[in-house]
Design a protein around this nucleic acid. Sequence first.
DNA 1: GACTGTGAAGCCATTCACAGCT
DNA 2: AGCTGTGAATGGCTTCACAGTC
Lengths: 210, 210
Amino acid sequence: MKALKIPEATIIRLSVYSRFLAQVKRRGVITISSGEIANGVGVSSAQVRKDLAYFGEFGTRGVGYNVGELYGHLMKILGLTSQWQVIIVGAGKLGSALTMYAGFAERGFKVVAVLDSDPRKIGQKLDSIEILPVSRLAEVAAANQSAIGIIAVPAEESQEVANTMVQAGIKAILNFSPRVLMVPEDIVIRNVDLSVNLEILSFYLGAQKR
Amino acid sequence: MKALKIPEATIIRLSVYSRFLAQVKRRGVITISSGEIANGVGVSSAQVRKDLAYFGEFGTRGVGYNVGELYGHLMKILGLTSQWQVIIVGAGKLGSALTMYAGFAERGFKVVAVLDSDPRKIGQKLDSIEILPVSRLAEVAAANQSAIGIIAVPAEESQEVANTMVQAGIKAILNFSPRVLMVPEDIVIRNVDLSVNLEILSFYLGAQKR
DNA sequence: GACTGTGAAGCCATTCACAGCT
DNA sequence: AGCTGTGAATGGCTTCACAGTC
């Protein structure tokens, strides 16, 4: 595995390819070309080949890629060959929905704990997971080494939760609050800002009228 | 307003700037420099100035930007000066959470209808919004001209829902299902793939160990 | 002195186009 | 003939650096 710097856009696409391949594989297809993958996910075939080339030579010239093999390679590249533990802070509407989101389990992410600061929520259950007080975050993080943290609390509380996560040793954070969070350089953080996405649609709708 | 092609990354940042400015404005700050904005949202000051320059000259050399004015400009650029209507298809965990998500209302997005295909859900209420059968989508879309559609159904059903939305005249779609959807060129579509985001974290966590 | 606006430079990602293999 | 892998060309975004303004 080359240490070359990989564009983030490539990683996003690899994740999309892998899900597309899972689907194709389920249909029993053995071999697939870069062009077919490209059609399936809406990119160019050159893009598919370039993306894969960062990580090795997975195909056969004149033939294409073996679906099962390529899928395996992608899952390995993405680090999805073993299960990841996930800790969610915030058991509001969004946090609850994320806790029970089947899409995570399908891809090997297991929610091991949900925490909230609201005393009325503590002790309630989401599926089989009991909501814990946020004061127990450090303890829970320690018990689940290298877990991924998800922040699903209101904007005002999000930075504080991030700080606590970092202190508890969490190295990767997915932030659903509409705030840009400050974290040390060695922490991997991604923001999923739901209204930003609507606002981009709003921008393009507006632009059409001009 | 110039017709120059604007990078999508710029639009995303404008949305982030606007929310940061709303926060600063609430604190009563009158004037702000590109450097202060940059610090607040984690980009370079040159980036902030370049982004704004696509749309005009909003600042005063030697002084900075008037917070209220700049905020107003950004909201106008993003098309957020009037309310957008939003139609959500899928009243599962995620659809329900999105329907009641306060962040949308704060930014002028109003959920006017929620639809589902499950007969057991029809007639139930989310906040004050009654869940309608998905068969009424065309009718609801017609009654809410230029509404934005949100897809929050399982992967297998998402393409069908997208087709129906397009036929019903919806021009912008936010897709939460983990599938790449095929839509006509004139439709604006964005994907928010929740597990892709976790998988990117997984990739970077894995890379650290190498 | 402070800060914006912007052409130019630098950098990074995507597309092209073709040699190489089956 | 079909398809991959990849160097070269292109295109686009970001950073630099400084002239212009207050």
